[in-house]
């Protein structure tokens, strides 16, 4: 199994906003073990997406140390895949064309056609390989985006509210599929979500961030066997605790 360990120490990130500097993340510590599934919850603007962009290497942190498997993170890399809430499929490419982006970008499409087919099979889109993104439903489009991310066999999968835009039923089904993929592929996963139940259903640990600037309020392990019933007493208590931390319940 291919999997990565992530370690962030005192991660601080600021944006220039006009003449001001806006602190989005303030001294965030985070350690994710290989193969672990960590969920990050927090109010809007707590820097959750920024954290993922830093982990993906798309932005450089203003301060702090960020390592993957002990090596400092230098920039985007095919071993770390990112999935957004908006599937961001390239509308001018078919589903297969979108999944082929990774192999094509690294110039190894010919030898990796089987991987493309396997990724499409994995998310159940083999029959829709020649469809254009505008023809897909929201759930299918998000599956295609997952296949595109998984074709590179990433060691670290970064999920930025990937199910946030889906309807409740599709969302439940996709949560299950996501778990299956994680169990089958064994990658390390960091999931940003607004949905506390989703975090409890999927993750080994839930990281609760404060409102801006984002600080770690709590790092809570979820000790329950999967598949989980979020109505179970232990998870119910945990949910109340998280919601209290987020200031939703008193």
């Amino acid at each position: 199994m291919v999997t990565a360990a992530v370690e962030a120490t005192a991660l601080t990130h600021r944006f220039a906003l006009g003449r001001d500097r806006l602190t989005v993340l303030d001294g965030v510590d985070l350690a994710v073990a290989p193969g672990e599934f960590v969920a990050v919850v927090g109010p809007s603007g707590s820097g959750k997406s920024t954290l993922l962009r830093l982990l993906a290497g798309l932005d450089r942190p203003t301060r702090g140390r960020l390592t993957v498997d002990g090596a400092p993170l230098a920039g985007p890399d095919p071993s770390r895949a990112l999935v957004f809430q908006d599937p961001t499929l390239f509308p001018w490419r078919t589903v297969r064309g979108n999944v082929e982006i990774g192999p094509r970008a690294t110039g190894r499409l010919r030898e990796r056609r089987d991987d493309v087919a396997a990724a499409l099979e994995l998310v159940g889109l083999t029959d829709f390989a020649d469809a254009y993104p505008s023809q897909l439903s929201g759930g299918m489009a998000q599956r295609a985006a997952l296949a595109r991310a998984l074709v590179n066999r990433p060691e670290l999968l970064l999920l930025d509210e990937p199910l946030g835009a889906l309807d409740a039923l599709t969302r439940l089904a996709m949560q299950k599929e996501l778990l299956n993929l994680w169990e089958a592929r064994g990658f390390t996963a960091v999931l940003v979500t607004h949905d506390v139940d989703e975090a409890l259903r999927l993750a080994d640990r839930v990281l609760v961030l404060s409102a801006r600037p984002g600080r770690v309020l709590a790092d809570l392990p979820v000790d329950a066997a999967r598949p989980r019933d979020t109505g179970a007493p232990a998870l119910r208590d945990l949910r109340h605790r998280i919601l209290r931390l987020l200031g939703v319940e008193s």
Partner: peptide, 24 residues
């Protein structure tokens, strides 16, 4: 976002220009 996605999938700047920017 298109550039972000392509970059995390291993695209270099040539790819970003000719395979992302131009078709878009």
């Amino acid at each position: 976002r298109y550039y972000d996605v392509a970059q995390t999938l291993g695209a270099g700047s040539g790819y970003l220009v000719w395979r992302v920017a131009v078709p878009a």
